[in-house]
């Protein structure tokens, strides 16, 4: 059997859904962050697949930019998590409720 682009897209769909569901299920802030990485990677996979299906290098360049932005996002996001954990020892997203009325 030949592996067409649709197989990659199905894997990306499942990966994105696992990431989105995990983001809703988990309470640990770090694991929620990893789930965001899973979703980003699923989208990257679709971009590369479309780049191959449509024979266009633009899809790969977009993935390059996504990687750059994801790296910046991880740096800032982890710094925010470190700053939050310094103030309070809670390990879950439920403990961060300062804006609650």
């Amino acid at each position: 059997m030949t592996i067409t682009g649709n197989y990659y897209l199905i894997v990306a769909l499942l990966l994105f859904t696992i990431g989105a569901t995990g983001l809703l299920i988990r309470r640990n802030v770090l694991v929620m962050f990893m789930c965001i990485e899973l979703m980003l990677n699923a989208v990257n996979l679709t971009f590369v697949t479309f780049a191959k299906m449509l024979d266009d290098v633009g899809g790969q360049v977009i993935v390059f930019f996504t990687l750059v932005v994801a790296a910046a996002e991880v740096a800032v996001g982890l710094a925010i998590i470190v700053a939050i954990f310094r103030r309070r020892r809670g390990a879950t997203a439920d403990d961060i409720d300062l804006l609650r009325g």
Partner: peptide, 8 residues
């Protein structure tokens, strides 16, 4: 997919 499930 197994790795993703493991993360979650």
């Amino acid at each position: 997919l197994g790795g993703a499930l493991g993360v979650v």
